[in-house]
Structures are given as C-alpha cells and as structure tokens.
Design a protein around this nucleic acid. Structure first.
Ligand SMILES: NC(=O)c1ccc[n+]([C@@H]2O[C@H](COP(=O)([O-])OP(=O)(O)OC[C@H]3O[C@@H](n4cnc5c(N)ncnc54)[C@H](O)[C@@H]3O)[C@@H](O)[C@H]2O)c1
Ligand SMILES: NC(=O)c1ccc[n+]([C@@H]2O[C@H](COP(=O)([O-])OP(=O)(O)OC[C@H]3O[C@@H](n4cnc5c(N)ncnc54)[C@H](O)[C@@H]3O)[C@@H](O)[C@H]2O)c1
Lengths: 212, 212
DNA sequence: CTTAAATTGTGAAAAATATCACGACTTTAT
DNA sequence: ATAAAGTCGTGATATTTTTCACAATTTAAG
C-alpha cells in the first residue's frame, strides 16, 4: 500500500530473488554479487542491480551484497514473517497435487482450507487440510482473502462471483477461463495450455541462437 | 522460422485468441469485433487490433472479423493442423494430474510419452501414456523435441542435461529451479510459488482500484 | 601504502509494449 | 438514397522495461 514506485516487472521478480537468496544462505554463503545472482536466476545483472536500487542502496561497491542482510530485507518486504493463508477451490487432479505439495518450504503462504462441491469430498481432509462445501463458504472462509481456483472452466465465472461476495480480493486462476471481477479484485492467470502452445510457436517461428 | 517480426508479447497472446475464437465458433457466432473479443480475453481492444495487424488485414472496417476465417488463419499460424508430441518428465503428483487432464480439447499438443526414474512406475501406463525409464530415453524418445519438466528441483539440472543430449529444444519447466541450457534450447518457466507470492505482494503494496 | 581488480548505483539510451485517436470504409436503418 | 452507427488499421504518442557504460567506492594483493 505504501511505495507504488516499484515497477511491476520488478515486483514479479522479488519472490525469485528471495528464493535464491535463501538457497545461498542455506549454503552458508556470506556475500553475493549481482553477477553471481544473475547466473543463478537467469536475469541480467544490470536488471538485478536496478531492481534492488528501488529499495535503496542495499549493496556495497566493490563488495557486492551481504546475503544475510539482503535476505532479511526481502523477508520483511515480502511479508515473510507473517503467514498468509489461502483457500483452494476445487480439489480435483490439480488441486490434490497442490495439497500434497508442501507449497511453502521457503515461504510463508499456506493453503489452510479447501472447498469443493462434490459431496464425496466435502467433510474429508487431504494432507491435513479440511475440505468444505462451496455452499458453506460463509461459515468457513474466515479471514482468508486469497484463493487458488482449480475447478472446471465452465464453473469459473459462477464460483468467482461467490468468492468475491465472500471478500476474496486475490485469485490465482488455473482455469482456461478469463474471469470477470470487480476492479478491487486482482487476478493472475496460470495457463498451461497457453504456455505450452506459446513455447511450441516460438520454437517454430523464432530463429534458434547458435551455441557458443 | 519465417517472420521474426511478430513481437514476443503478441506471440504469447496468440494461443489465447485461438482458444476464444474456438469458443465463439462452437457457439455458432459468425463475426466478432475487437471490442467483443477484448471483453472475453481481457486484453485492450487496440492491442488486439495491433496484434492481428502484424499478420495483415484480417478484418473488415465497420464489420469486424469473420470468426471462421480468423480461426482458420490462427489454426495454420499456430500449426494446429499437425499434432505436436511432447514428453512428460516426472510422473509424480503434478505429472499425474497432467496426464489425467486432456490437455488438448481445443489444441493439437499431446503428451504421448512419459519418463520417470521410479522402477515402480516404469513400465506402467497412465491414461494410455506409457512410462519409460529416464535411463532409456535414447530408445524411446523418438522424434519428440519438447518436454514438460515435473521432477524435484534437485534433479532439474542433471535431467535437463539428459534431455538436451537427446535433442530436446523446448522445455516447460515446472520446477522452482532455473535450469542452465545451451543457447539453442528454449525454456519457459511456470512457477506457482513465485506467482502466488507475487500476487500477495501486489495485494499488499499496490492500491486497489475502487469499483465503478 | 599503493595499485589493480571488483562491483555497485544510476544517468542516459535503447528497446519493447501499450494506448490514443482518427480517417477510411462497411453495415444498418430509415 | 442518405444518414447514422460501428469498426478496422495505423501513425503518433505514451509508458514500461531493459540494457549500456562508467564514476565512485571498496576490497585484495603486493
Ligand atoms: N489437471 C491439469 O493438469 C490441468 C492443467 C491445466 C489446467 N487445468 C485446469 O485446472 C482446472 C482443474 O483441473 P482438474 O484436472 O483438477 O479438474 P478436475 O475435474 O479433476 O477437478 C475439478 C474439481 O472441482 C470441483 N468442482 C466442480 N465444480 C465446482 C464448483 N462449482 N465449486 C467447487 N468445486 C467444484 C470438482 O468436484 C472437482 O473436485 C480446470 O479448469 C483445468 O482446465 C488442469
Ligand atoms: N505438486 C504441485 O502442486 C507443485 C506445485 C508447484 C511446483 N511443483 C514442482 O513440480 C515438480 C514436481 O512436483 P510433484 O509434486 O509432482 O513431485 P513428486 O515428488 O510427486 O514427483 C516427482 C516425480 O519425479 C520422479 N523423478 C525424480 N527424480 C527423477 C529423475 N532424475 N528422472 C526422472 N524422474 C524423476 C519421481 O519418481 C516422481 O515420480 C517439483 O519440482 C515441484 O517443486 C509442484
């Protein structure tokens, strides 16, 4: 809510930086240069320096960045000190994979509740996460504001309306549908089929670079 | 390989346009305007017209676009007339979900072979797709050039080397690792954890727009 | 202490992407 | 026929993102 000055492109890379800094810290590394980090995350080193610079002077000339300090900085920037709870909507093939995957490891986002409409699933648990009926969202959603949508595309718009009505303001949408939401709701799409088709298109239409 | 003139941002939207045109066609719609399409795919109408214009004059002033014609055009542009086979590497939680999901419906990309290292999985089938040993890739990969990577992050680099050695030139990487590949290989990342964290970050740091 | 090597932070330039806005043409209605 | 409404394609402009390139500074070595 504070500094709206950070470019979106930068904001999207922050979690990535955070993850790799964590790796480095675990490996006991004390310092890192933008060049080294660049090789690890595959982002140009000038871009990394520019990204970091939006938050002030985090490094030291001739030295690089102190891993522990930088990690701590990003931890608070990304609010990693507090746990963010999210809801999973649709416990099918994909949803079940999410629940079985410890999403977190290095981050503080947890799926703590799931919702489905299948009466055979409602009332059960997967990996300790309870599955509630989508019709009883008012009873169970609580303070959760972010939802992962993994239901059939045909249901996407109707279910989105329910989510919005219950106060959801962020949706990670795995369905191929492009859902309609009020302006105060933010939607990010992850669309496997589109990604795969785009990859194939690029391979066929863009010249491959030669190896060195 | 031909027209390198199409901007990457445009290329990434093509599969999306294709999908929605297919929907419209199925619904029996004969024509569509950039404005209508814009509302469906949530892309600004001027952007859509600009995107289309890279391929020539596909529409008619005062009329819009002929759905059937446009669909046919994109079908050939996206090579939807021929089937592209891809390999799945790693038949775990996520990989299994992919196999159970008919990826295709409206597109001509098929997962036809899977590879894993687990001896209990090798030799079995999921949804008709045979699972081979990763150590016997030379015997089974055939002409496949694109792979979906869904193995643990720790294995990503080693397995990528194997893939590249066997002629893979496109990888859709679902692991959190940023893999290193020769220049002639194209990698697209789908990183759930990063997407989710970025979504949460945006919600906290960017002012929400008021609804109209 | 002096010098060479490393590395940041950033102004400036370049590249990529998105949007505005309007002339030209088509369709539809009367 | 004529007028009104709708819509494309695109030059121009705005915005966003990336990259270059170097002065300033720190570290490391002799
Ligand atoms: N499985 C994949 O690999 C994959 C890949 C790409 C995209 N997707 C997309 O992800 C979504 C889910 O895929 P899936 O394979 O898990 O599907 P699925 O059919 O296995 O699961 C869908 C789940 O949603 C539940 N559901 C249906 N309607 C509901 C409603 N109104 N409210 C609450 N729950 C409801 C069903 O009971 C089921 O448990 C789909 O939109 C699919 O297109 C899946
Ligand atoms: N499951 C999810 O929801 C999810 C979400 C985001 C990211 N991911 C990522 O996707 C990847 C796969 O996740 P998952 O949950 O399916 O894991 P998983 O452990 O369920 O499955 C991994 C599969 O890969 C196989 N494998 C391991 N090493 C291999 C090797 N060297 N060669 C071939 N096969 C090998 C294993 O036998 C297993 O079948 C991971 O990198 C994970 O971080 C998963």
């Amino acid at each position: 809510m504070e500094q709206n000055k950070i470019p979106q492109a930068t904001a999207k890379r922050l979690p990535l930086y955070y993850r790799f800094l964590n790796n480095l810290y675990q490996q006991g590394k004390k310092r890192v240069s933008s060049k080294e980090l660049s090789e690890a995350v595959k982002v140009d080193s000038a871009t990394i320096r520019r990204d970091f610079s939006y938050f002030g002077a985090l490094g030291k000339k001739g030295y690089g960045y102190n891993v522990e300090y930088l990690l701590g900085f990003f931890r608070s920037t990304l609010d990693q000190h507090e746990i963010t709870e999210v809801a999973l909507i649709g416990v099918g093939n994909l949803g079940t994979a999410f629940l079985k995957y410890s999403f977190l490891k290095n981050n503080n986002i947890r799926i703590t509740k799931a919702f489905d409409k299948d009466p055979n699933k409602v009332g059960t648990e997967v990996e300790g996460v309870p599955i509630y009926s989508i019709d009883e969202m008012d009873k169970h959603l609580g303070h959760i504001r972010v939802a992962i949508l993994a239901i059939p595309a045909s249901e996407a718009d109707a279910v989105t309306d329910i989510l919005v009505k219950h106060g959801i303001i962020g949706i990670l949408n795995f369905t191929p549908a492009r859902i309609t939401v009020p302006k105060h709701v933010r939607v990010h799409h992850i669309d496997f089929a589109v990604e795969l088709q785009a990859l194939v298109y690029f391979l066929k239409h863009y010249p491959l670079e030669k190896d060195e």
